[in-house]
């Protein structure tokens, strides 16, 4: 049974069609990134998965149950945007309270350790920095040891260092076979942390693949080297090359398969200098996917 099964959900707010006919199946144990620019419909989609937003059409199931039922059984943990904390409770109290609502919570000390909150356990939640508060939201999401963890822009308030620690914690959590779905507009985060990337634009899924495949789709990789005065003629006939670009003394070959191209270069007896194989940042892939007219 899939951990998350979204079937043809749609939702409009007034005349704005936030989500249009999205279907998505996430098997248990997968880490999925929902990647998209602001306003793409990520939060609405996540709200529908959590039962916080009612779809106009379609349906959502978590482990075969509707979202409210799944929440009632303690299968779901979530970090939702703009979730302010309860100012007059300590970190330990608020995390312990949320964990205690679940049938089989994680031991409290373990949760605090995982979220990096051990030293802040006695502090009032109202007296935390933005980054610290974000760690408390993460702790609340995992405190009940839920099977499905849904995170909406989880690293929004974090600096680089805190972001790294955060993803390390998520990976530790997911390593136990749990399903994690997170929304982000940070491309590197999707690239580094997800098994699968679902790209959302204008309320629709425009791509759904591994991070590597997404990059591939944006035009593959480039092989670049210095010509050293030799003519560039004939390079376009090498196996695997889809385009050739020469700028001054530098040749740039586009290809889906750099290994074949490089082998062919050496096989042709060319003395290749300054060889460089580059992969376009996921950002380029992302832009080409989300800006395409569909």
């Amino acid at each position: 049974m899939d951990a998350i099964n979204v079937e043809g959900v749609a939702r409009s707010f007034g005349t704005v069609r936030a989500v249009e006919g999205v279907s998505l199946r996430v098997p248990a144990g997968q880490v999925v990134a929902v990647l998209g620019p602001n306003g793409a419909g990520k939060s609405t989609l996540i709200g529908m998965m959590l039962g916080l937003v009612t779809p106009d059409g379609g349906r959502v199931e978590l482990f075969g149950r509707n979202p409210s039922q799944a929440a009632a059984e303690g299968l779901v943990g979530a970090m939702i945007q703009q979730g302010d904390l309860v100012p007059n409770l300590t970190v330990r109290e608020v995390v312990g309270f949320v964990g205690g609502l679940y049938p089989r919570p994680m031991p409290l000390d373990e949760v605090l350790e995982l979220a990096g909150l051990t030293d802040l356990a006695g502090r009032r939640a109202g007296r935390l920095s933005g980054g610290q508060a974000q760690r408390v939201r993460f702790a609340m999401a995992v405190a009940g040891a839920p099977e499905v963890l849904v995170l909406d822009e989880p690293t929004a308030a974090l600096d680089v260092e805190a972001r790294r620690a955060f993803w390390a914690a998520i990976r530790r959590y997911a390593a136990g076979g749990r399903t994690v779905l997170f929304a982000t507009h940070h491309l590197d985060e999707a690239d580094e942390n997800a098994d699968r990337v679902v790209v959302v634009a204008r309320g629709r899924i425009v791509a759904d693949a591994t991070p590597a495949e997404i990059k591939q789709r944006a035009g593959g990789r480039t092989v670049r080297f210095t010509l050293g005065g030799r003519p560039a003629a004939g390079l376009e006939r090498l196996p695997g090359v889809t385009a050739v670009e020469v700028t001054g003394d530098v040749a740039t070959l586009r290809t889906a398969d750099p290994d074949t191209v490089v082998a062919a270069l050496y096989g042709a007896g060319l003395t290749v200098r300054d060889l460089e194989i580059t992969t376009p940042a996921l950002e380029d892939a992302f832009l080409s996917l989300t800006s395409a007219d569909l």
């Binding site: 916080l52 943990g77 302010d84 904390l85 609502l101």
Partner: peptide, 15 residues
Amino acid sequence: RRSGWLRQLRVTPLK
């Protein structure tokens, strides 16, 4: 309602 605390609780088993 404004802060989202009630939404947070709705995701938990609390009825």
